[in-house]
């Protein structure tokens, strides 16, 4: 059985938290550049140019890309033949977040109780999902979710007869209602199937995929492309001030569901789309 010390997890999580908040990932930068070329109005082009400039300044001047450095969400795949030494894996992840947000001068945006609203002071807890998988590796997929976009997310329990059309209408409706608030150009994560919670989980997980990488299922891939075109024809544009680029991608994940149901969840991500992964 392979052994992995918890200190390695702490270090990896800490570094991931800092990196995603200071360095725009390559897939997103390419999407910015493509949008710059596509935008026709001087206002929308100027916005995209400023976002590219923002990424340069963030990297060179040690400033986070955005002041909302997010709530950390971690998807962990633990190989069943891996032994984690030195302590609790959950505590190790939380400690990594704590250290990353402190040493990276990142904003602490988490409140302890949703109603009393006292800041926890270290941006913990992160939300962690575990999957036990074959093998002896530990894969950490981490994102820092801003709430401008999170607040614009939606879920709905459709009827089976609503079908593809019903799902697509709900996704489009969610994007229209969100308008400028989620900081477009957005990434649209969609979860279809499962249960209420599973659909929401899938929508969130879909956001971890690099921009431009489609679902492998043919009918889902077609839906992703069709929805992206429809969304970009809405004219919401960068920052919701009009333009051709409302979304960089529509990323759908599906799961088996009950004969009586068709759950759908839409989780939006802002244009910075902080996400990364690491295998230990």
């Amino acid at each position: 059985m392979r052994e992995l010390h918890k200190e390695e997890i702490i270090l990896a999580v800490k570094e991931m938290c800092i990196t995603i908040n200071y360095q725009l990932s390559q897939d997103v930068l390419h999407a910015y550049q493509a949008a710059c070329l596509k935008e026709e109005s001087s206002l929308s082009r100027e916005i995209m140019e400023n976002l590219i400039k923002n990424a340069d300044i963030a990297r060179e001047r040690d400033l986070p890309l955005c002041q909302d450095t997010g709530m950390v969400i971690v998807f962990v795949e633990i190989g069943q033949d891996l032994h984690i030494a030195g302590g609790d894996v959950t505590q190790a992840i939380q400690e990594g977040v704590r250290q990353g947000y402190r040493e990276g001068y990142l904003r602490k945006s988490v409140v302890k109780d949703p109603l009393i609203r006292e800041n926890t002071g270290d941006n913990t807890p992160a939300i962690i999902y575990y999957d036990i998988v074959p093998g002896e590796k530990l894969k950490i997929m981490l994102s820092a979710k801003g709430f401008g976009s999170e607040n614009m997310s939606k879920t709905k329990m459709l009827k089976p007869s609503d079908g593809i059309r019903g799902v697509e209408d709900f996704v489009i409706e969610s994007v229209i209602q969100a308008g400028p608030n989620p900081c477009p150009p957005i990434i649209v994560g969609v979860g279809i199937g499962g249960t209420l919670d599973k659909a929401a989980y899938l929508a969130k997980k879909a956001l971890l995929r690099p921009i431009g990488k489609y679902n492998e299922l043919q009918h889902i891939q077609e839906m992703e492309k069709r929805l992206l075109e429809k969304i970009n024809n809405l004219g919401i544009g960068p920052q919701g001030l009009g333009g051709k680029t409302t979304a960089f991608g529509v990323q759908i994940e599906v799961f088996p569901t009950h004969i009586a149901g068709l759950p759908v969840a839409v989780n939006l991500n802002c244009h910075i789309s902080r996400h990364t992964e690491k295998v230990l």
Binding site: N50, N54, C66, Q67
Partner: peptide, 13 residues
């Protein structure tokens, strides 16, 4: 006024 959302580094300058 709308400032550019997600341009926090640029605005900081």
């Amino acid at each position: 006024f709308a400032a550019i959302g997600g341009a926090g580094a640029l605005i900081s300058e």
